[in-house]
Design a binder for these strands. Sequence first.
RNA 1: GCCCCCAUGGUGCAACGGCUAGCACAUCACUCUUUCAAGGUGGAGAUAGGGGUUCGAUUCCCCUUGGGGGCACCA
Length: 489
Amino acid sequence: MTRKVRTRFAPSPTGQPHLGNARTAILNWLYARNQGGAFVLRFEDTDTARNVEGGEQAILDALDWLGLDRDEGPDVGGDHGPYRQSERGELYLARARGLVADGHAFRCFCTPEEMEADRVAAIAAGEPPGRDRRCRDLDPIVSAGREAEAPSAGEEVTLRLRVDSGPVAFEDRLKGALSIDGDDLGDMVLVRPDGRPTYNFAVAVDDFEMQISHVIRGIGHLSNTPKQVLLYRAFGAPPPEFIHIPSVLAEGGGKLAKRAGAPGVLDYRDEGFTPDAILNYLSLLAWSSATGEEVLTRRELIEQIDLDRLGATDAEVDPEKLRWLSGQHLRRQSAVSIAAAWAGVSGVAELGLSDEDLVRAAEVFVQRTSVLTDAPEELAAVFADPDLRTEAAREVLASPDASLALETLAGAWEETDWDVGTLKASMRNAMQASGVTGKSFFQPTRMSLMGATHGPDLTDVAYALGEARTRRRLARALELAHDHRRETE
RNA sequence: GCCCCCAUGGUGCAACGGCUAGCACAUCACUCUUUCAAGGUGGAGAUAGGGGUUCGAUUCCCCUUGGGGGCACCA
């Protein structure tokens, strides 16, 4: 039996996903793309109290930023909608009534108080709680009549699934064969008196009707699975394949919770990470490529994702490795695209650089950055007008050989091609010609070009600055160097 | 209390029941370099503990310990 692969990401609209939720979405998306299947987004918003203003949009923004495009969902539509549980009330009701009609479910007239009393009594008696004692065996004709009169009789009716004793077996791709006894489940509530479906019922109905083939979700849902399997059984359909993935833990091993200050995906964007780096990093949590390769592009991830290579242990987030991976991704990009990304980083525009400046700088300075937001500082260090009136500058420029070094270098760079290789060669020539070497040559040069005593390779700096700026800076420093010499003599 | 899951260096992963337990991040040293990065080379560092099964166990089984999850008319 080969059915089309359809995966889904089904968050509650409580705001931007944290890293753990993002990884769930990523795995679903990667697998769908790998299989040429469909990736479905569904909002589980039946608990209105939990919904957050703007929560849906934050999730969409996060998915968009990560590049996880949907084939179906609340924003793009599709043949299996609506894609918000809050808009699917009728479907749940119809499905529940169907289950009552064919005997899989029954009407329960017990009050919450009665149920609670039963629960306590069952536990006290050492029996599993959750089994209805009064209503499950009511005659259908009788219970239908009682439902009709419920409003006037002041009764409320709950729809519950008839769960028999005996094993409920199911398969998890990672955990293998699992089984739990129906007695431990109880007669689960499907629809509350007010008509709202319970979570597990809604999920099963949705996954069933949306023809989801693979449910890839957090391990926390493992215990919900038998209930959903039971529902599929009642629907007379085979359940989807379940893949329960281990948790992503916060640094230090704690839970990744928003209330504990866990950053959202969009926060990483704001910190200058690229979506590909996040995608790569998160996919490496509990998964590894067959080749052992760790720096993987989006395309490579799609090609190589393999559910059978998923691990079963919880994984801690490691910010250091994330940064490293981010740097690796940056370094693999073209200078043009890095320059474009830098242009959008706050603090870069203020430097007043041209597109060419940015591209040249990207060529030689990416290796100094891990995230996009590292750029402003690196660029400012080179492009900002050097302040040569500092004590440090004065000291360096007043050194005996400063003038000679600067003069010779300015001459050497007069008639050269402006590329790093040539600049480096002619700088060496200048050193030889002047007889000034090592520190006494480099210090004055670095001071004139960037007003500092340390920084990137000097030829990289000159290359990034461009010919005109470089010449101007050398000339100005040379002037000062002459002045200083005169003063000291 | 009951049920379920997990367990390889600090962190993330790898190892048909079979080479000296491998890779990456971090760390330390060296190297390249005027400097700071990036890069290169090398080092230290792990199978949670105890029992089995087996010629042989990181791998299979049991117990202990530790961690996580669940036991809802929450999602």
